[in-house]
Design a binder for these strands. Structure first.
Lengths: 132, 132
DNA sequence: AGACAACGGTATCCATTGGATACTGATAGC
DNA sequence: GCTATCAGTATCCAATGGATACCGTTGTCT
């Protein structure tokens, strides 16, 4: 088996696609990007909108997104400070696939939640029958 | 500000969309789903294909996907055991948005990697200039 | 008969990450 | 002075992720 032959192989750890799934995979990153879809937002606003993320984690997320060229960080020389985060063109281009995913989410989440309940119930029953 | 008014609001922690982003966000889940796109795969194969995931973590991932009704787990009464994982209809429906994301990934990853290098270089220089 | 191999996991342990809480630095307004 | 605002750090602890070792079942080999 040679996984390297598959076109655009997500499976190869060296495959660049993983880079993206790492970023999207980040618990907050995709949320932040979607929030920024409506225009620049400053740190404290972001913190309120993405309830509820701690400042440390939000900073980490934003730095990572900035590093990947998906957002820009603009500091205005004011007091109290004002820092705005904004999507780059690259970041905006990610908006569309992300939206598709969100649409899938919105239409299928009820099914997922049902499946979860069913699964958990089945587990509970199995527990009752087993020698515990 | 009332975030609940936004349609299909990903920002509300109670919003079901987060459920999905949690799942996709899982480091291995989206990879597994894409692997299963070509048909049922057994545990050890999956392990080889998604290099390199430890058995514990793969099991956790698979259980979570099963719980959410995205895959099924079929045990064949054989020795040595044979367990196959397969996408459900729901899981298959997720394939398309995931593919869009992967396509985005494949076309933009070079840009991201460049951005990373540039960012890291800038950081290094900043370090040199600062009083360390 | 005994040893070994195949498969699908668990069990155990440790490193890394995530999150809660408290705190800082600069300055404008009172 | 004292306080408030904003954008973060610093510190600490809990949860997660990952490496490694091990288990149970049974067929095959010797």
């Amino acid at each position: 088996m040679d996984t390297n032959d598959l076109p655009g192989n997500v499976l190869d750890p060296n495959c660049p696609s993983r880079v993206v799934f790492q970023r999207i995979g980040d618990k907050w990153a995709s949320l932040v990007i979607q929030v920024l879809g409506d225009g620049p937002v400053r740190f404290s606003e972001l913190r309120k909108m993405v309830n509820v993320v701690t400042p440390k984690v939000l900073t980490q997320t934003l730095r990572a997104l900035e590093r990947d060229g998906l957002i820009t960080r603009t500091v205005y020389a004011q007091v109290p400070p004002r820092v705005e985060y904004e999507l780059t063109a690259l970041g905006e281009s990610l908006l569309q696939p992300l939206t598709m995913l969100r649409q899938w989410a919105e239409s299928h989440v009820p099914t997922i939640l049902e499946a979860r309940d069913a699964y958990d119930d089945a587990q509970d029953e199995a527990l009752l029958r087993s020698p515990n």
